[in-house]
Amino acid sequence: MDDRVILRVGAKILIPFIMIFGLYVHFHGDYGPGGGFQAGVIFAAAFVLYALIFGLGNAIQVLPPKAAYICAAMGVVIYLGVGFLGIILGGQFMDYSVLAYSYTGQHYGIIGVELGVVTTVFGVMVALFYAFAGRRRVDS
């Protein structure tokens, strides 16, 4: 590993930018292309890059598989929670207009569900990566 200095340095430089780009894609989704799904994938890509360069062991220390798994489940809970909030506040399921006055409610709702999406997608992608990368080769 130690002889791949360029890779390690390059990755160290790239990963923060990828993550910031992920944040940008997530929060800029309202205005330009992007949104929770793409952002989740980009975050996961940053993480996968880290795991590829610095090894699975280090990656697991940063984010245990269990955490990825919890992320995947929590995202769905968040998304559906926003939906239930609509009912609790007196509207229909997934009704954002009751969350706050006028289109502000729409904003809150969209941010909420995008948060759910990004959490699930990130968690799922990382969990999938762990699932495949964490296995020994069968016929070896």
Binding site: A72, A73, M74, V77, G83, F84, F93
Partner: peptide
């Protein structure tokens, strides 16, 4: 009046809950 949605989404939200437990 929310039963049509709840019919589907209650089992759906219980799925991640089951996974998390």
């Amino acid at each position: 009046e929310h039963l049509p949605a709840l019919l589907v989404v209650v089992p759906l939200i219980l799925a991640p809950v089951a996974a998390l437990s």
